[in-house]
Design a protein around this nucleic acid. Structure first.
Length: 587
RNA sequence: GGCCCCGUAGCUCAGCAGGAUAGAGCACAGGAUUCCUAAUCCUGGUGUCGCAGGUUCGAGUCCUGCCGGGGUCGCCA
């Protein structure tokens, strides 16, 4: 149950009655009426703007109308008090009994608590990672990967049918360069002295050497020939190297706990004629023409020359300029194949497309959304989520990385060092469009300053309470049925009630995070719950009567254990969404 | 020059898709801690929400224009 939605419905019923009575116009629109937690808890549990929104249409002052609505709300059993405040807000104080009963809801729903259905089974395609198969995943890819995976999980929880997808850029010039890098390394491994200068402009990573070693172990018939410069041989080398890199990338993704449902190959799209088809489709609709682009203002590229080229009319769909589809050598531009790719995703059934991109591709967004609009005839929408940079901090200083020098920190390095759970949680503690610092010392610290630890510890502590219970009260039945039927009316302490209220926010948090595509909200919420739980636990130090386990009062103990279980349920549910394994013990 | 993102407390950042007196952590200050259930706890915030207009009953939030930082701008992906 989403408690705010529940009370919004109650408010709507009161408003309908007022409309019936002629206080409100019969055709009143309640669409703008909200029911939200007030910022200041002192104002009550819920607040509605109903009177403010409807006063004008009713021809009365907001406060007068508020008084009438308040009257209707007071009649509800679940409402303890109602008051009109400020310009006409209506503050509702919900009855303790209502809150207490929610604990049973949470336990009954279990891990499904917070599931929403507004996705209605609608297909959504989330494309993320999509790192080029010319090297390993490095740390910048980790953030986009974790974000995409968590967003996908979040959308699933909200009721969408989600496909997790990886676009493999295994076509074009970069594969040729990779092939050349591989062949050169093979020659080097065979003992030939290859001058360092020859590797200029090629892929420098250690993994290319690994790939070369693997290539040399192939049976002669399948092995690329290091000495041959033929196109066929180069193609074979490229194919092998791409396959090798993708194997390792998949391996590293698995180490991060990520599994994509679909890997789509750019090459296969080109070879199947999908790009030709998309081009012909747009051309047939008059959306492609041959023209000359204005040179970019500001800094002019050295080798700029005006030339006519095939342009997509992106300006018709809101982009600032039309965009080229073919390179001077006649090959498709990346944009052209990407159009076909997005069309392909839409054809496979998803009208909601989400792409997770690095910040350096931001400028590409308008043309891609324009293209999706054009190629799907407005039936599909593209939402691009931009991931800002990650800075690694070690010993208080930023870790410098240079792709050219080949000293990038890989996903594998970091996962091996701190564990995938830490990587995943930390990567989700910031908005995707804000830069993130990943401080090795901080993320592994065992203190309340470290959110990962703090949240995990709250979950572990809840399990600890049950372990303690078994020692003190070996005969107590803490099974599901026993807890669900506990006497929740005994949970009257303020700390207990505020904990319950916080737990009932979970469905609302899920909804807002899913709608805005912002998983970081979950992280903040989990931290919040953990803080409240720890704080309540600590109250038991000074006031032993507040402790969860009370050997002198079994009904109370059961109700409190039910609450602890509810806390564990919600925290675990959030962690699972993040792909983090909830800890039952801290070690 | 065009476009995109960001600008909130000393620092790092939230701000619930417009709501009441803008929050958290760190840092800093004061206090508690031979109590206990596992990794301390409590208290303390006078912020031009970059600036200026606009929309609205109401703007940190939406619109416009500036300022500052970052990214990007045909034949890379």
């Amino acid at each position: 149950m989403n408690v705010f939605r529940h009370f919004r419905d109650q408010i709507a019923a009161v408003l309908a009655a007022l409309a019936e009575a002629g206080v409100l116009p019969a055709d009143s629109d309640f669409g703008r009426v909200t029911c939200e937690p007030p910022r200041d808890a002192a104002h009550g549990d819920m607040a509605t703007n109903a009177a403010l929104v409807l006063a004008k249409a009713a021809g009365t002052k907001p406060r007068d109308l508020a008084g009438k609505i308040a009257e209707g709300l007071r009649a509800l059993d679940s409402v303890a008090a109602v008051e009109v405040a400020g310009p006409g807000f209506i503050n509702i104080r919900v009855a303790d009994r209502f809150w207490q009963d929610r604990v049973a809801d949470i336990l009954a729903a279990g891990p499904a608590y917070g599931d929403a259905d507004f996705g209605q089974g609608e297909p959504v395609n989330v494309e993320f990672t999509s790192a080029n198969p010319t090297g390993l995943l490095h740390i910048a890819h980790a953030r986009g990967t974790v974000f995409g995976d968590a967003l996908a999980a979040l959308l699933e929880k909200a009721g969408y049918a989600v496909t997790r997808e990886y676009y493999v850029n295994d076509w074009g010039g970069q594969v040729d360069i990779l092939a050349e890098s591989l062949l050169k390394r093979m020659r080097q491994l065979q003992g030939e002295a290859v001058p360092e200068a020859e590797f200029e402009g090629l892929y420098p990573g250690r993994e290319v050497i690994d790939a070369a070693e693997a290539a040399l172990k192939l049976p002669p018939g399948e092995r690329p020939d290091p000495m041959s410069g033929s196109d066929e041989n180069r193609a074979r080398a490229g194919e092998f190297a791409v396959g090798y890199m993708m194997d390792r990338i998949r391996h590293d993704l698995a180490a991060l706990g990520v599994r994509h449902d679909v890997f789509t190959s750019e090459r296969s799209l080109v070879e199947a004629g999908a790009v030709d088809a998309a081009f012909a489709d747009l051309e047939g609709r008059g959306l492609i023409y041959t023209g000359i682009l204005e040179p970019p203002k500001g800094k002019l590229p050295d080798d700029w020359e005006e030339r006519p080229q095939s342009l997509f009319r992106a300006t018709r769909f809101g982009d600032a300029t039309d965009r080229p589809l073919k390179k001077s050598n006649g090959d498709w531009t990346y944009f052209a194949t990407d159009i076909a790719y997005h069309q392909d995703k839409a054809k496979r059934g998803a009208n909601r497309l989400i792409d997770v991109w690095g910040a350096d591709h931001q400028g590409y967004i308008p043309r891609m959304t324009a293209a999706v609009d054009a190629v799907t005839r407005g039936t599909a929408t593209l939402d691009v989520k931009v991931i800002q940079l990650v800075r690694l901090i070690r010993d208080g200083t930023v870790v410098k990385m240079s792709k050219r020098a080949g000293n990038v920190v890989t996903v594998r390095d970091v996962v091996d060092e701190v564990g995938k759970d830490v990587v995943r949680f930390v990567m989700l503690t910031r908005r995707n469009d804000a830069p993130l610092d990943f401080d090795f010392a901080r993320v592994t610290e065992q203190s309340k300053d470290n959110p990962v630890f703090y949240v995990q510890y709250a979950h572990a502590r809840s399990h600890s309470v049950f372990r303690q219970t078994k020692d003190v009260l070996p005969d107590i039945d803490t099974g599901h049925a026993s807890l669900v039927n506990a006497k929740f009316g005994t949970l009257t302490n303020e700390g207990e009630l505020s904990l319950i209220k916080k737990l009932t926010m979970w469905p609302r948090v899920i909804e807002s995070a899913a709608e805005t595509h912002e998983p970081h909200r979950i992280a903040y919420y989990l931290y919040d719950i953990a803080a409240d739980f720890h704080a309540h636990w600590n109250r038991g130090r000074d006031e032993p009567e507040l402790r969860f386990v009370r050997p002198d009062d079994l009904p109370l103990t059961l109700a409190r254990l039910a609450l602890v279980k509810a806390v564990a349920t919600v925290i675990a549910s959030g962690l699972v969404l993040f792909g983090v394994a909830p800890a039952e013990e801290m070690r």
